[in-house]
Computed example of a mutant assay.
Amino acid sequence: MANSKALGTGGRKSDKDLKIRVKTAKGRKVASTKWLERQLNDPYVARARAEGYRSRAAFKIKEMDEKHKFFKKGMRVVDLGAAPGGWSQVAAQAVGSTIANPLVVGIDYLDMDPVPGVILFKKDFTEDDAPQMLIEAMGGHGVDVVMSDMAWPTTGHRPTDHLRIVHLIEIAAEFAIQVLNPGGVFIAKVFQGGTEHELLHMLKRHFKTTIHVKPPSSRKDSAEAYLVAKGFNGGRSAEGE
């Protein structure tokens, strides 16, 4: 009779022992090796591959939607900083966007493979004509969800990086206020240091609720979180009501 060890039922190694370790190859930096090792051991990376999503980031928007319920069938969605397309994939599935009736529009300056049911633009959203391109792609219809996973490449200088991400949130929020239907939702990536008080105050004037969220799939050692503003009031400020 085969012993239990031969059958794999005895002497079981712990999850820590089973962790994939990557040796530093010639010409590869230590940081790159650590990133590769983390990717290979990340369960969300494996899930994304198994479920056909472009990246693990797809689970961030899925988890936020499961908790806060901002996607519904027939809604129109704009995805800012869409590459590689995971958020657009999730949104298209959730709202029922199809090639014949696309309800999702995405934009990024990086290359992206086509996403079924999504109109994609390769363009920097900070360019002056980018917002109008998105509006025209929506055929004049209002938008129900504006989501932004935009982020500048980090400089390593935290105050500078913070100001740069706040600037992206500001222009994304201004666009959202311009295009959202009443009751609409705005979602944007933020980083440690929070949202500037002036920006947060502006959003609170235009949305019923504004909260910060860190979905389970966001790595614990990451400084990122997400700002979720729900219940757009149609552009009416608190002072004007």
Rank of each mutant, 00 (worst) to 15 (best):
M1Y: 15
A2D: 11
A2Q: 11
N3Q: 13
K5A: 05
L7A: 15
G8Q: 08
G8S: 09
T9S: 15
G10C: 07
G11H: 06
G11L: 05
R12F: 08
D15R: 15
D15Y: 15
K16H: 12
K19N: 00
I20Q: 08
I20K: 15
R21V: 01
V22N: 13
K23H: 06
T24K: 14
T24L: 07
A25R: 08
A25S: 11
A25T: 02
G27F: 04
G27K: 05
R28T: 14
K29D: 13
V30N: 12
S32W: 00
E37P: 03
R38H: 14
L40K: 12
N41H: 15
N41R: 15
N41I: 15
D42T: 09
Y44M: 04
R47M: 10
A48M: 08
A48W: 06
E51K: 09
E51F: 06
Y53F: 13
Y53C: 07
S55L: 01
A57L: 09
F59A: 09
I61C: 10
M64E: 09
M64C: 01
H68P: 05
K69V: 11
F70R: 04
F71I: 02
K73D: 09
V77N: 01
G81V: 06
A82P: 01
P84I: 02
G85L: 05
W87N: 02
S88R: 07
S88V: 06
A92E: 05
Q93F: 06
Q93K: 07
G96Q: 02
S97R: 03
T98A: 06
I99M: 11
I99F: 09
N101F: 09
N101M: 09
P102I: 05
V104C: 15
V105K: 02
G106E: 01
Y109N: 14
L110C: 03
D113E: 12
P116C: 06
G117K: 09
V118I: 12
K122Q: 14
F125T: 04
D128M: 12
I135H: 12
M138S: 10
G142F: 03
M147T: 01
M147P: 03
M150N: 01
A151K: 03
W152G: 08
P153C: 04
T155P: 05
H157K: 11
P159I: 03
H162R: 10
H162N: 10
R164E: 04
R164L: 07
R164N: 14
V166H: 08
H167I: 03
L168A: 01
E170K: 04
A172V: 00
A173P: 00
I177K: 02
I177H: 01
Q178S: 11
N181L: 14
N181Y: 10
P182A: 06
P182M: 12
G183D: 15
G183E: 10
G184I: 02
K189D: 06
E196A: 14
E198W: 00
L199D: 08
L199H: 04
L200M: 08
H201P: 01
M202I: 09
M202C: 07
K204S: 04
R205M: 08
F207T: 11
T210V: 15
I211R: 13
K214L: 14
K214N: 07
P216N: 13
P216A: 04
D221Q: 13
S222M: 14
A223T: 11
E224R: 03
L227P: 02
K230R: 13
G231T: 12
